[in-house]
Design a protein around this nucleic acid. Structure first.
Lengths: 197, 197
DNA sequence: ATCTTATGAATGCGTATTCATTCATTTTTC
DNA sequence: GAAAAATGAATGAATACGCATTCATAAGAT
């Protein structure tokens, strides 16, 4: 078995276990069991429990950024780009629920107990949105008065909170795709420049 | 010293300590020290560590709901109501940063380690938004096609994420009031019925 | 035969919770 | 009104336990 396989197996197991129990309630032995390795093996691949969480962030968000950038750079219209970002984010949260939970919950609270860790990957992800806004403003499609720094957070927050509760709640009166569509529609028609339709 | 005073002192201390360290890293002795009581005293007022967190949620969100409902029921225009909700939420997060952090971080992850606890207060808070949307749809101000269940989460998520990062980040190129205004403007003009301006 | 990788029982630390004791108030008795 | 008895709030040292991490040993690879 190649080295990287065990690394991956442990990360995947950690996603499952952290999602189910949360970082603090999760035991190393839970992760080991889930990954079908011995407790000690985990320490051959990671320095400590925190390190598992950080590696998980870096690797998984890294993949997501690559994916979404690839999808977006094919497009020309900033409005379409926002729609794609919204849909991609929401679909991802639906498909990979465990990962979604870990990113949404643990990621945010991580800066509390890991003071030294600055989550640059996460910032990079959200900055994809502000780049789109910039482009839209240059093209005259979006209002110049818009603050991209506010917008990116608002947009991301709207998507994230909606998908978070969608995943948690058992009753789904709407689909993920509908929700993504509604949210991007609201935002897009909310930020159009006045000279646009 | 009246009984309720110690209860309050402990809650307030817990807000400070949970905000600084997070629920799990916070020690009971930290809270006791902050509240200027003995460790054991805390167990005269609360059953256990979780109970402090739950009481904190119930009491503090309860206050917030009362406040915002009072502000909103004076208004008639659903658009103004949304603006008020946004501004109130953001200002609150700015004024009571510690409380904001605890609500934003620990609240969300609480259902992970306290399976039995359903946070009805929080739902009640967010439902203030969907009630506004309903009213706006009845009046014909907001698009009928809008799903209030999606909107409330998107709107709340946008506010919450923006204020969360505003509180965390040291650089503030915009004020809380500006951000609240931008967000409510985006949402309001994004959901206007077509026959409106 | 040596080096690498894996194991899981044992260790030790951190801290939530308990509980015997103290002490200030209130109530009762004379 | 003073002394005695009862109450229960508050204390914080001691306990008990969960779990991250280590490491002596084993298994596998070359």
């Amino acid at each position: 078995m190649r080295t990287s396989d065990k690394h991956t197996k442990i990360i995947e197991a950690a996603i499952t276990v952290f999602a189910r129990k949360g970082f603090f309630s999760a035991r190393i032995s839970d992760i080991a069991k889930e990954a079908q390795v011995a407790d000690g093996t985990i320490y051959l691949y990671f320095n400590n429990k925190y390190d598992i969480l950080i590696s998980l962030f870096e690797e998984e968000i890294g993949k997501i950024i690559l994916e979404v950038k690839l999808l977006i750079e094919k497009e020309n219209d900033p409005r379409t780009m926002l729609q794609i970002f919204a849909l991609h984010h929401m679909q991802l949260m639906e498909e990979k629920r465990d990962l979604a939970e870990v990113l949404q919950m643990e990621l945010r609270q991580s800066n509390k107990f890991m003071k030294e860790y600055r989550n640059t990957k996460f910032i990079e992800y959200v900055d994809v949105v502000s780049a789109i806004i910039h482009k839209g403003q240059e093209k005259g499609v979006f209002r110049k008065s818009l603050l991209p720094g506010v917008f990116k957070r608002a947009f991301f927050g709207a998507l994230d909170e909606t998908s978070r509760l969608w995943v948690l709640s058992p009753d789904h009166s709407y689909t993920i795709d509908e929700a993504a569509r509604q949210i991007s529609d609201i935002f897009i028609s909310g930020i159009m420049a006045d000279n646009q339709t």
